[in-house]
Amino acid sequence: MLETEMSETVMSETGPLLRVRDLHAEIGDPRAPVHALRGVSFDILRGEAVGFVGESGSGKSVTARAVMRLAPEGAKVRLRGSVDFAGRDLLQLDESEMLDIRGRRIAMVFQDPMTSLNPVMTVGAQIDDIIRRHMNLSAREARARSVELLGLVGIQDPARRADDYPHQFSGGMRQRVLIAIAISCDPDLLIADEPTTALDVTVQAQILRLLLRLRDERGMSLMLITHDFGVVAGMVETVNVMYRGRIVETGRVDAVFAAPAHDYTRRLLAATPRLHRSGQAA
């Protein structure tokens, strides 16, 4: 098992790794903004896996990006509230301080593996660059680590495959590469934004199992965003149900499933297609 190095600040901190309070996000023209988040508050403990469920446009992805202070190119996003990560409010940091957090302390796996890799760089080079950015390693050492990571996420013959380009990998394999990129610098928090939505059902299960295994081995916290209750069920301890920019229900995943308190949660659960009447969520 690989050792997880935690920095001193994290060791000395107690309480949740991530504490988000009253987070608001406004997108676009200040005169007629879209209120994507309307006061979101939640905690993620060290090593905890937390699910965020909700329909499209409910604010799950905006929440994830707000934590990383990332916005799509050209989008004007204004954030209010606080995002305390290991004792620091990320919303108060300047961009250069955020650069040291992104990829190093908080990493992200995105929805569509087909478009998330740079088509003109080898996959090895795309892991090397994040490693060399955050760790003081030579090119050779970084590549050795990249190859090790590719092996860890289940790429066969990783030393040779590191020199291949993204188009030579299947969708599932590309998502494994993206996971290798995300965990490359031993982040404290891994955000997975709909990591299996673009994948075949059989591959989905593999990717979810991989994420769970990595979280257990490395003691990372996991923020899993999905519109699919079935994905959340076996994966996380706590679930937050989001609707229209708010968290409408939060609790232990089994409790929420057994007795959804909020009407929207009940409707969302009812909307999940099931193969058997009992369902996997029961």
């Binding site: 799509p72 050209g74 992104r102 990493a107 998330s116 890799l117 003109v120 950015r133």
Partner: peptide, 28 residues
Amino acid sequence: VANQDFVMVARAKGLRRGAVLRDYLIRN
């Protein structure tokens, strides 16, 4: 290219602006 997902991934890696520009934007 700036709107492509891989540019967002590059930024999520914490890469510096120059590196994102050179290896992700310009090369593509």
